[in-house]
Amino acid sequence: ETFPLDVLVNTAAEDLPRGVDPSRKENFLSDEDFKAVFGMTRSAFANLPLWKQQNLKKEKGLF
């Protein structure tokens, strides 16, 4: 299941849709939104070091 970017960005855990893991908001973006937000594919993002993934998520309001 995916959700629009505005539902996930800068949203407190208690305000997220049911079933969304607040530590993994990026997994609930569509592939198109994911690429638009991070400028890379999911596989490229997954290959980044964890610290870099976290920094990007913070920068984009998805942490």
Rank of each mutant, 00 (worst) to 15 (best):
L62R: 02
Q53E: 00
G61T: 01
R24M: 11
S43T: 14
A36W: 12
T11D: 06
L56R: 01
K57P: 00
F3H: 08
E26V: 05
N55C: 15
V7M: 14
R42N: 01
A46H: 11
S23E: 15
S23L: 15
V20L: 08
K52I: 13
R24Y: 12
F34L: 01
S30C: 06
A36F: 13
K35T: 13
G19V: 12
L8R: 03
F3L: 12
N55G: 11
G61Y: 03
P4N: 06
K60G: 03
A44C: 10
E32D: 13
S43N: 11
V20Y: 05
K35D: 12
A44Q: 13
T11A: 12
F3M: 05
V9T: 09
L29K: 01
Q54F: 12
E26K: 02
A12C: 14
D15Q: 10
V37W: 02
S30V: 02
E59V: 08
R24Q: 11
N27Q: 15
L29V: 03
L56Q: 01
M40E: 00
E1G: 11
N10L: 07
K58R: 13
P49Y: 01
D21N: 08
D6R: 08
N27C: 13
D31G: 04
D31A: 08
S23V: 09
D15P: 05
L5W: 08
G61P: 02
A12P: 14
G19M: 11
L29P: 01
F28A: 09
T11C: 12
A46N: 12
L29W: 04
G19H: 09
E32L: 10
V37D: 00
E26F: 05
A12N: 12
L5N: 03
F3R: 04
G39K: 09
E32F: 10
Q53G: 00
P49T: 05
N27R: 11
L5K: 06
L29H: 01
R24S: 09
R42V: 02
K25N: 03
A12M: 10
K57E: 03
S43G: 11
P22D: 06
G61Q: 03
V37L: 13
V37E: 02
K60D: 01
K57F: 06
K58S: 08
W51M: 07
T41H: 07
L16Y: 14
F28W: 15
S30K: 05
Q54W: 12
K25H: 04
P49W: 01
A12T: 08
L48S: 01
D33H: 04
R18E: 15
S23I: 09
N55H: 13
F63D: 15
N47W: 08
S30E: 02
L48K: 08
K57Y: 06
V37A: 08
G39C: 10
D31F: 03
K58V: 11
A13C: 15
D6S: 14
K52R: 13
A12H: 10
P22W: 02
K57H: 01
P4V: 03
V9G: 04
Q54G: 07
L62S: 02
V9P: 03
D15W: 07
L8S: 03
E1P: 14
P22R: 06
E1L: 15
A36V: 12
N47F: 08
P22C: 08
L48F: 04
V7D: 07
P22S: 08
P17A: 03
P17C: 08
F28N: 07
N27V: 11
A13Y: 11
P22H: 07
R18M: 14
E59L: 12
E59S: 10
L16N: 04
L56P: 00
L29T: 01
R18N: 14
E26R: 02
G19D: 07
A36G: 08
F3N: 04
F34I: 01
F3S: 03
N55K: 14
L62I: 08
F38K: 00
Q54E: 13
G19S: 11
P49G: 02
K57S: 02
D21W: 04
F63V: 12
T41K: 06
N27L: 13
V9F: 06
T2M: 09
L16W: 06
M40C: 06
F63Q: 14
D33T: 07
K52H: 12
Q54Y: 14
V7G: 04
A46I: 10
G39D: 09
G19I: 11
V7Y: 15
R24V: 09
D15S: 10
F28M: 06
Q53F: 00
A13Q: 10
V37Q: 02
A12R: 14
A36Y: 13
A12I: 09
V20K: 04
D15M: 09
D21C: 09
L29G: 01
A13V: 14
L16F: 07
P17H: 04
G39L: 09
L50D: 09
K57V: 07
E14S: 11
A13K: 10
A46C: 10
N10R: 09
S43C: 13
T2R: 08
E1W: 09
F63N: 13
P49F: 01
L5C: 09
W51D: 11
K60A: 14
A36E: 12
E26I: 06
G19W: 10
A44W: 06
L8K: 03
K35N: 15
P17W: 03
P22K: 06
P17Q: 02
S23F: 13
L56N: 01
P49M: 02
A36K: 13
D6H: 15
K58L: 08
E32V: 10
A46D: 09
T41Q: 07
T2P: 05
D21K: 04
P22M: 05
E59M: 11
R24C: 13
R42C: 02
D31Y: 03
N10P: 05
D15E: 10
F28S: 11
N10M: 08
F63T: 13
K25Y: 05
D33F: 02
K58F: 10
D33M: 05
L50Q: 12
K58P: 00
M40A: 00
D33P: 00
L62E: 02
S23R: 11
L16S: 05
A44H: 10
A12Q: 10
F38A: 00
N47D: 13
L8C: 06
N55D: 14
L29D: 01
G61H: 05
K25I: 15
F45A: 00
L48A: 01
T41G: 08
F34N: 00
G19A: 10
E1H: 13
V37K: 01
P17S: 02
R24I: 07
T2W: 13
N55Q: 15
F63G: 15
R24A: 10
P17V: 03
E1Q: 15
L5Q: 05
L5I: 12
E1F: 14
F3W: 15
V20C: 07
L16D: 06
V9C: 09
N55F: 12
S23H: 15
N27K: 15
T11S: 12
D31R: 02
K58G: 05
T11E: 06
F63Y: 14
